[in-house]
């Protein structure tokens, strides 16, 4: 077959749509990732109410459950569930494609530009998925909580983190979130095509700043409980 004929043969696959294409799925992963990072940032800020005492936090929780006549939280849940689902779908199919693209590896490949965060995205992602399930069973449904009280989210939060194993898993998951965010926030700008030498250092610094802020504050919660600062 000549090159032209081969390329015509390949053209059959060329009609393939946005979601089937590699770049299209990267864009889905980036867009859903932005939704999820937006959520974790707002979630981190909302939980700052725990530093203001039981009343403030319970009041905030009540607001979340009653806004827009109780509909608001379900809208948020639907958006987040869809985003997580699409994100995992894109991540899984792309990862499988990438593994198939190099069936035989190198004896000793020397990485010179990639980071530990970039090379562990799929593992930090899997730990985050496990954490999300656990976190919902822990503080939303209370299924795996030692003494859950639906009417008192503040008490659930304090009592939940008094269990050292629960606090430890929470902290490990936050460190994974840090790795995922630090690479992901930068990476998604690239997937959206937002690159320009003028803004390159801004992209990196924004990723670092947001990661340190979200992960730092999130980790402070179980530490504040364990040290008795929040009680």
């Amino acid at each position: 077959m000549s090159v032209a004929e081969q390329s015509i043969a390949g053209a059959e696959a060329r009609g393939h749509g946005f979601l089937a294409s590699s770049v299209g799925r990267k864009v889905v992963m980036a867009a859903t990732g932005v939704i999820l990072f937006g959520f974790v940032t707002v979630h981190m800020l909302g939980n700052l109410t725990s530093y203001m005492g039981a009343e403030a936090m319970n009041h905030y929780a009540e607001f979340l459950h009653t806004m827009i006549h109780g509909m608001g939280i379900w809208v948020f849940r639907a958006v987040l569930l869809t985003a997580v689902g699409l994100h995992i779908w894109a991540a899984t199919t792309l990862t499988l494609d990438n593994m198939a693209a190099r069936p035989v590896g190198y004896r000793n490949q020397k990485n010179v530009a990639s980071t530990w965060a970039s090379r562990t995205m799929r593992w930090s992602g899997v730990i985050l998925a496990a954490f999300i399930v656990y976190h919902l069973l822990h503080l939303t449904t209370g299924t795996v909580h030692p003494n859950f009280d639906r009417a008192n989210p503040y008490a659930n939060f304090v009592n939940g983190f008094k269990v050292p194993a629960a606090a430890a898993f929470y902290i490990v998951a936050q460190l994974c979130l840090g790795l995922h965010m630090w690479h992901g926030v930068w990476s998604c700008t690239q997937s959206f095509g937002l690159a320009h030498p003028r803004y390159d250092s801004l992209r990196r610094n924004f990723a670092t700043g947001l990661t340190v802020l979200v992960v730092g504050v999130n980790i402070s919660y179980p530490i504040a409980v364990l040290t008795g600062f929040i009680h």
């Binding site: 390949g10 696959a13 990485n111 990639s114 970039s118």
Partner: peptide, 16 residues
């Protein structure tokens, strides 16, 4: 589309 049909992988922005 041709790049995908040739079964190359996708960029995850490692920079290698």
């Amino acid at each position: 589309a041709q790049m995908d049909a040739e079964e190359f992988g996708t960029c995850t922005n490692h920079g290698e």
